[in-house]
Design a protein around this nucleic acid. Sequence first.
DNA 1: TTCTAGGGTTAGAAATCCTGAGGGTTGAGA
DNA 2: TCTCAACCCTCAGGATTTCTAACCCTAGAA
Lengths: 288, 288
Amino acid sequence: MTVSPPKPRDIPLNALRAFEAAARLGGFAAAGAELGVTPGAVTAHVKALEAELGVALFERQAKGVALTALGQRCLPQLVGAFDALAAAVQLLRAEAAPRVVHIATLPAIAQLWLSPRLPQLRLAAPEISISITAMEAPPNLKRAPFDLCLFYGHGQGSLAEDVIFPVCSPSVADRLHEVADLADVPCLSDATWAQDWQVWLGQAAPEASILPRGPVFSLYALAVEEAVNGAGVLMGHEALVARHLERGALVAPFGPRVTLPRGLRLWAARPVFRGSAVEVVQRWLSKV
Amino acid sequence: MTVSPPKPRDIPLNALRAFEAAARLGGFAAAGAELGVTPGAVTAHVKALEAELGVALFERQAKGVALTALGQRCLPQLVGAFDALAAAVQLLRAEAAPRVVHIATLPAIAQLWLSPRLPQLRLAAPEISISITAMEAPPNLKRAPFDLCLFYGHGQGSLAEDVIFPVCSPSVADRLHEVADLADVPCLSDATWAQDWQVWLGQAAPEASILPRGPVFSLYALAVEEAVNGAGVLMGHEALVARHLERGALVAPFGPRVTLPRGLRLWAARPVFRGSAVEVVQRWLSKV
DNA sequence: TTCTAGGGTTAGAAATCCTGAGGGTTGAGA
DNA sequence: TCTCAACCCTCAGGATTTCTAACCCTAGAA
């Protein structure tokens, strides 16, 4: 009968959000990444929440954490609530800035595919402004404030297949006549697409036992720049090097073009209303 | 095409909550009261949100604020989301402390009606602990963390009618023989029930033109205490003075008992599961 | 006019929140 | 078995957010 907690203090919203993210994503590190904070901050929030409730929500294990049964019972409601909240925020944003379209995409796509098209898009729809955010992986569309996503992947809305083949500057190309010559030049690669060379070699020259060597870049656009400057041979993704091929800054010294089982996809975060700015941009990008 | 806001920064949850409360309640002062902060804090939150969105959400008028059209369009979603969030929190609390029942009630009821019953309730259900929070008005049940509400009002779940009549200590009663004698003794009253004397006189002695005078208390329980000490005559609410009448500390010197058009009501914030602690307490309080 | 209710400011204090460094534990692969 | 890579924890600052308190301002009511 004791008046246990004299005042049922209300729970900090941020702690709730941290718990929800950690529970949904199955770890504090992942939750921190989604929320844009360090895992330590998530730890603190979860601990505060547990202290407030007087119950353990996670079982700490050496490798990762596991939701307690209690946490599992409450999670669905919490996820639903935060989804609804995120949706409300999206509505608020859309109402506040109806002519702004937020696009999430890979850094490489942003710089090499999207950016060159923006001037024309501006001419075609001058009243619309575009906001581009680069990230390594498609965001959680129920939460992140984006209207369109542009990534490589499977499924609907493919703008183009992902076709790869070696490219280099014309001067470097002069030294290359057959696939075996690749052993003699630096083979540039991108950290996130580290498999490119193996995949291409496996399809284009399965019998050749070449081990491509060369610098690894963390930004594909940088690797492209280096290739243009004659630093070596890069595995080119058609959509991303097309402009340089047209201009002659890069050439494809030889051979087989390998089509990867994925495409450049553009999709909307939410149903798109006819005539909305998002629809205009989506239609325009799909057409060009 | 400018990358207008370089980063679509995410909106502070607390600012959203402040806006939602202000919009729903129609004022910053009311929102501050609900959230337990000063109006100035609400002002700051709303302003931060407006700055973030780049839009006005309220039209400031000299007397109060009014939602803009944009605010009105977004409000329902936002209210729904926070309702869902509150529900999730309630679930979390209930799961974390299933044997704790939170009751919201008037200070007077807490002290004079509920508190005397608690020892017996403890005997009847020793595994349940009760948390009592006193407040002037029933809380918003979709938001506030309570399981049961106990207030005067209309509707279902009435435990008793609200019957009022003058009470005083036996020594004071000796000097009172008829209603007119009230003019000669202090008439205690409570600030929140300031009408009590007028209502009772209007029904009990409509022709008498007595203007009751005496100290006004902000806590009814204090007024009761004073009446017991012989400080004057108090308009007693039957449920709240019953114990003192039984013990003889207070007596009803005369007359008519007036039944107000309201009762002492007990209701649950949410559907109550059979066998739950809330159900046990609700049933027990309704019976006693 | 004066009073009252409701908002807007501001500075400074309080609480919250975050980072960054250091430490553990475990499982996988060399 | 050893090392590495993932995780998580703690802790102490310090940055940021949030709140209060006291002030001013306006419009309508008494």
